[in-house]
């Protein structure tokens, strides 16, 4: 096993222990739920990084087509979507107990939901094309569109919006207050690295399985031709 997998195990166990027992500032309304920072927020960090890796592999595929690059892009996108769905679910639960509702028409929430729909359409598109090369090419092009749509939806539109409940933009003092807390940073940054590495690990195993599958199928095809 590679070294970064040991690092992922250690960082995740550290996140679970220190994330629950470590010091957090006393804040009204948020109370202990601010510990969600170590679990909800890294989902989005991990998702963005892994979807970025996916689109890089899609561009590489278009420049130089190979089944290997198609698999890398596809499996990365699947892990990214998984992390995004988990981020939406945990965010919704968190909102229920701090904002008092499962969902509001907040620009950040809707942007994240639309992003997930765009990426679900990526999977639908792949499922709809039978020819392997056509599927790889079409979905690589769509992936570029999906990523270019996701970045403004997640990171630009919420920032230029005039009002939002979600932290990380104007009008909410909550985030900056505990964002500055050095004790929380000591858990938050390792948590982001740990959860991202877990996403990369899952993607790596999924890709290797797909490579083996690909190899077996090409061998079977060769046998049939012979």
């Amino acid at each position: 096993m590679k070294w970064w997998k040991y690092l992922a195990i250690v960082l995740l166990l550290y996140t679970a222990i220190a994330g629950l027992l470590g010091h957090v500032p006393r804040l009204a309304i948020l109370n202990e739920t601010e510990r969600n920072l170590y679990f909800h927020v890294p989902m989005w960090f991990g998702m963005t990084i892994i979807l970025g890796a996916s689109v890089v592999n899609s561009v590489r595929y278009l420049r130089n087509p190979s089944p290997r690059l198609d698999i890398l892009a596809h499996e990365s996108a699947k892990t990214g979507i998984l992390l995004g769905v988990l981020g939406l679910m945990t965010g919704s639960l968190w909102a229920r107990y701090t904002w008092g509702t499962w969902w509001t028409t907040d620009v950040k929430l809707n942007g994240a939901a639309v992003t997930m729909l765009i990426y679900l359409a990526y999977l639908v598109l792949r499922g709809a094309v039978a020819d392997e090369q056509q599927r790889a090419r079409l979905s690589a092009i769509y992936n570029i569109f999906a990523f270019s749509a996701a970045i403004p939806l997640l990171f630009i539109m919420p920032r230029i919006a005039s009002a939002s409940l979600h932290p990380g933009m104007g009008g909410n003092p909550g985030f900056s207050k505990y964002d500055l807390d050095s004790a929380m940073r000591l858990v938050f940054y390792p948590a982001v690295i740990g959860w991202t590495l877990l996403g990369v690990w899952i993607t790596e195993v999924a890709c290797r399985l797909a490579f083996v599958k690909e190899k077996i199928y090409t061998k079977l095809d060769e046998k049939q031709l012979a």
């Binding site: 250690v10 220190a18 470590g22 390792p190």
Partner: peptide, 16 residues
Amino acid sequence: AVALLLPLLLLVSTAF
């Protein structure tokens, strides 16, 4: 794992 985990936990133990 323990060798990596212990220094990290010691760091936050002051915060506890």
